[in-house]
Design a protein around this nucleic acid. Structure first.
Length: 664
DNA sequence: GCATCATGCAA
DNA sequence: TATTGCATGATGC
């Protein structure tokens, strides 16, 4: 038996030293533990020590406790901070006691992993497993007699774990030069935008040009602070507050230029790392508040304050009126709009453009860590997170072009269309949803048709078109999604919102309508989809009874709070109960598709490998010559993840591309 | 150095 | 009080 506690880590470590472990990996106790109980975060998590304590009552000291050393202070005396020396230092420590400790620790670690496997295996074997009937059509499963959660682990998650490790090792190729080039552009654009914002702040108070646009407290003070409560007329008095900001190099240079005479070297006071600045409070009316009750400075808020001052004709936000209109109001709106643009570019730079090229290996490939560590069974991606790369209009600098195929190779990028909604239709058996999917076309438009009678009639009279192929020239009538754009948007919000357990309060707030109106719209949605309502009630009821909710493949998520006394916690648990089967079910399907893909010998022999998964999207890399042959094979695997069909089709869209941007 | 908060990116 | 994640910068202890 080969057992690991986090095989991904050990496997990569060994592989980095040229050691390949052959044979059958029997279990990864991290994944087994996650399957056993999804919610140990905050209760010790999935560390070997905490699992040993909870499952077998064995004490196990962490490595840091045994081998931690006090970090030396500047004067050479031991400080308070404990650090862990690297393994080589520990193994070669001349102190015999240390060596023995090392041997003992490593052996004990191994023994723990061994016992943990059997303990978790027993736990999983004692948990009933009742997936959707279709799962039993699986070839692997037909050969087995057992039907417990361990069966699920052994047949699906265990091999899936190996796929993930292989993907991590393979990594994605990154065009670094392209990223450097785009980062430079972004840097210039950001400076332009922030410059005009800072000039405006300077026009309000002299220190304004030193404001840090990344600091929420500074922005909050500048925009909303006032010393007095609003009077009867709602007006408030501004006041000043000081902040410490970094003293930038350019500012030091500026100072020398101002104070130094030509050719003369001045001994200025040593550069201070911080500078005190004093900012004015404008006492604008807050638009939203954060969780801790502070006035929010989020993008949406700034957007409301600014309006669209650069549009033609311009429209001005709430800041215009608050500042008495006129030129002052106009200047404020324009400055805030610039701030917003500057902030967006800063986000792209600091989170994506700048760090990414620093995280590649010598072959310019980037290796994320893919974990099965979510409550629902989705994957998460870490260091770096490749699952949140900007897309579509947010990808202003076309970063996705950097995720590319190396010379002579191609990417195959495939994704499911409306996967979660299709699963919802499948699980609820909702006739209306299933019909809409069978008829095809834009799903949200179809929803709008049966929510609004007048849209249905307009379609009936052929006054609007549901779909039109642009290859056939201009459409003979306006498109539904244009003519009834707001209705379609509402239908779309509900389609997704319902799956998350959206309340009428949220709908009313988002759409700016009354509670009654919001409730009515939700009722309209449900009235044609009674099976959905019924399914949701049943699922919540079952969760209350059993303490857990389960996915399509029979994975469980325990929801202890669903019967608790805390109303907030209960509400969250109820929404999780209906959302997890959908989100987790989608994750199940993508996993099955990936297993099937991995099992397709033809795809593998032609040299194609999966390199990334983004929830409903899979990216493969392989040789250019065989891309055309492999593409339909990939698609077939995904469209038929089980060996017999579901009641709803799972259409897959995709393309052969040179980079991720093209594959959109 | 670490924890917390606010924010924003993805599906 | 619409779900699931991760990374970042600022701030205060």
């Amino acid at each position: 038996l080969q057992i690991f506690h986090n095989w991904s880590f050990d496997g990569h470590l060994l592989a980095n030293h040229g050691i390949e472990i052959l044979g059958h990996r029997s279990g990864d106790t991290v994944h087994m533990a996650r399957l056993w109980d999804t919610s140990r975060q905050g209760r010790g998590g999935y560390k070997l020590s905490s699992l040993m304590q909870d499952l077998l009552g064995w004490g196990k000291t962490d490595m840091k406790e045994v081998f931690g050393r006090f970090k030396l202070k500047k004067d050479g005396t031991p400080g308070k901070v404990v650090y862990l020396p690297d393994s080589l230092t520990l193994q070669t420590d001349p102190n015999v006691t240390m060596f023995e400790k090392w041997i003992h620790y490593s052996t004990y670690d191994t023994i723990c992993t061994w016992y943990l496997y059997f303990s978790l295996r027993k736990e999983l074997e004692n948990m009933s497993w009742s997936p959707d009937a279709i799962v039993y059509e699986n070839e692997l499963l037909k050969m087995r007699a057992d039907r417990t959660l361990f069966t699920f682990y052994d047949c699906f998650w265990r091999p899936f774990g190996q796929i993930l490790t292989d993907m991590e090792r393979k990594g994605m190729y990154i065009d670094k030069d392209y990223l450097y080039q785009q980062a430079e552009k972004a840097q210039e654009d950001k400076e332009k935008r922030t410059e005009s914002f800072m000039q405006w702040v300077r026009s309000l108070c002299p220190d304004g040009k030193y404001i840090n646009i990344n600091s929420n407290p500074q922005k909050r003070h500048l925009l909303f602070s006032s010393i007095t409560e609003p009077d009867d007329a709602g007006s408030r008095e501004p006041h000043m507050r000081t902040f410490q900001v970094d003293n930038k190099v350019e500012e030091e240079e500026e100072r020398e230029e101002e104070e130094g005479e030509e050719g003369e070297v001045l001994f200025l006071s040593p550069p201070r790392s911080k500078r005190s600045i004093s900012l004015l409070g404008l006492a604008l009316t807050p638009v939203a508040y954060t969780a801790t009750g502070q006035a929010s400075t989020a993008g949406q808020v700034i957007q409301k304050l600014a309006g669209k001052p650069f549009a033609s004709p311009p429209s001005y936000g709430t800041a215009f009126k608050d500042l008495g209109g006129g030129e002052e109001g106009k200047a404020a709106c324009e400055a805030l709009a610039s701030l917003l643009e500057g902030e967006a570019i800063e986000k792209l730079l600091s989170t994506f453009l700048l760090p990414l090229p620093e995280q590649t290996d010598e072959a310019s490939r980037i290796h994320t860590s893919l974990n099965i560590n979510t409550e629902t069974g989705r994957l998460s991606s870490q260091r770096p997170n490749l699952q949140n790369q900007p897309a579509l209009e947010k990808d202003v600098y076309r970063m996705r072009k950097a995720f590319s195929a190396p010379p002579g190779r191609k990417l195959i990028i495939v994704d499911y269309g409306q996967l979660e909604l299709r699963i919802m239709a499948q699980m609820t058996g909702c006739r209306s949803m299933l019909d809409a999917f069978e008829q095809g076309g834009d799903f949200h438009s179809r929803t709008a048709i049966d929510m609004y009678r007048y849209i249905a009639e307009a379609v009936e009279r052929k006054e609007v078109l549901l779909e039109w192929n642009s290859h056939d020239g201009a459409p003979p009538a306006p498109m539904l999604k244009d003519k009834f754009a707001s209705e379609r948007r509402k239908a779309k919000t509900l389609n997704f919102g319902i799956a998350y357990g959206m309340t009428k309060m949220k709908v009313a707030r988002d759409w700016g309508v009354s509670l009654e109106e919001a409730e009515e719209t939700i009722q309209t949605w449900y009235s044609a989809r009674k099976e959905v309502k019924q399914w949701q009630e049943e699922v919540i009821e079952r969760a209350r009874r059993t303490g857990y909710t389960e996915t399509f493949l029979g994975r469980r998520r325990y929801l202890p709070e669903i019967n608790g006394r805390d109303g907030v916690g209960r509400g969250h648990a109820e929404r999780a109960a209906i959302n997890t089967p959908i989100q987790g079910g989608a994750a199940d399907i993508v996993m099955m598709a990936m297993l099937k893909l991995r099992g397709e010998e033809r795809i593998r022999r032609l040299g194609w490998r999966m390199v990334m998964q983004i929830h409903d999207e899979i990216i493969l890399e392989g040789p250019e010559e065989t891309a055309e042959e492999v593409f339909p094979l990939v698609r077939a695997c995904m469209e038929q993840p089980f060996d017999s069909p579901l009641s709803v089709e799972l259409p897959v869209d995709g393309s052969i591309a040179d980079n991720w941007y093209e594959g959109k």
